[in-house]
Write a protein that binds this DNA or RNA. Structure first.
Lengths: 229, 229
DNA sequence: GCATGTGAATAGATTCACAGCG
DNA sequence: CGCTGTGAATCTATTCACATGC
């Protein structure tokens, strides 16, 4: 084997690494030290060959005839995903969803720390959610200058989502997760992903319409960071 | 042209149809009657050739030299996605997220109607959210027998998500949207999709780590319905 | 003329199947 | 012997480029 870890991890692999990570954490929590690709595949609901190929992109960390060392894999995947450092998160928009996100326990688990909350409604400014005080969205740049923000979560109504995105970008935010049901444009250097409830439901209805038995085989939600100028 | 609408729409196309739909609705709202693939592509943040190929899977509904009729496209896509009928939705788990989802206005827009809410906490049973009373999750089967449920949204903690999924399946639910951070198994006939906040964040950190300028081109979140036995 | 619709080319992801090694 | 690691085959999706037809 010439070069084990050939750079450039495929997008599809990247989107599965967090899934592997989660299952590996569960295994580690039950003191399992080794795992085969078959077992891990089962836990993650994917094909074993896919697991092996995915993991091979991190370099070769398995032992033939035995399997993978759980701890070793954990640290490799964590490093690859950048989870060895802390990621300050800001949430913009504290309606129902933003509120829920702000209270979400489970961010912290993987190094995501909510450091700032913003809303355009002055009535909400000053409120404290999960120990963080809500500031006005006009203070976004100022707040980001004090405390850097790596990830911005957009939970505002669609019509104002683009301007919020622009402000986040101006404030130096390098990753954005968009919950607003609209297409956003950001500079190429900014990573952008979206979560859209209504789109998910519509995709579900498409497949459930096809009648029982016609739903095709498993396939994960993937998709790299998108960027649009 | 032999057979315009060749059946079997590609998964990647299916996941983009809702995006086209949304932009077309906006165009229709501003009384635009025709749209070119270029314009639609721009609005949706995708490539124009992709738009044309996607739409060609619905049959050929464009006029050469002119573009597509907005209303016609709307009705074609709506029909394809099954949005001409109503889809009764149940939400299980009314913590922060479930609460936010239950209050979400925007379901109704596309024929999704929240008809039932369930929680395992007896203290929450009886509460009314968005005009729907919360019932105990033990009543799920009974409630579904009265009022059919097509789509189940799982917003419970990961450890109990599988048993909730099992109950939904037993109650005849044919589509499930899972917000719990765990892998679920459902019979092949049931469509399953997942939304996982922490996975999204981890994917973002991967790409933002690669440093500015290295984020690869646009690509949408796709993925068909998955099913695991 | 101009934008659609589509074969052909390319790129990417999945799966197979087996060689290689512990 | 068992399980990893990986070339090769396959399948899917994207993109190109242009013939087609309004």
């Amino acid at each position: 084997m010439a070069g084990p870890q050939s750079r450039r991890i495929p997008d599809a692999t990247v989107s599965r690494l967090p899934v592997y990570l989660r299952s590996l954490l569960e295994l580690a929590a039950t003191n399992v030290t080794m795992v085969s690709s078959d077992r891990l595949a089962e836990l993650c609901g994917v094909n074993a060959a896919k697991v092996r190929k995915d993991l091979s992109h991190l370099g070769s960390y398995g032992t033939r005839g035995v399997g993978y060392d759980v701890e070793l894999l954990l640290s490799q995947i964590s490093r690859e995903l950048g989870l060895t450092q802390d990621w300050p998160v800001a949430i913009v928009g504290l309606g129902n969803l933003g509120h829920a996100l702000a209270n979400y326990r489970g961010f912290g688990v993987r190094g995501f720390r909510v450091v700032a909350l913003f809303d355009a409604d002055r009535a909400r400014v000053g409120e404290e959610i999960g120990g963080v005080r809500v500031r006005h969205v006009d203070d976004l740049a100022a707040a980001a200058a004090e405390t850097p923000i790596a990830i911005g979560i957009i939970a505002v109504p669609a019509p104002v989502a683009q301007q919020v995105a622009d402000r986040l970008v101006d404030a130096g935010v390098v990753s954005i997760l968009n919950f607003a049901p609209t297409v956003l444009s950001v500079p190429e250097r900014v990573s952008l992903r979206k979560v859209d409830l209504s789109i998910e439901l519509q995709i579900l209805t498409f497949y459930s319409q096809r009648g029982p038995g016609e739903v095709r085989g498993p396939a994960e939600v993937r998709g790299p960071a998108e960027a649009t100028a």
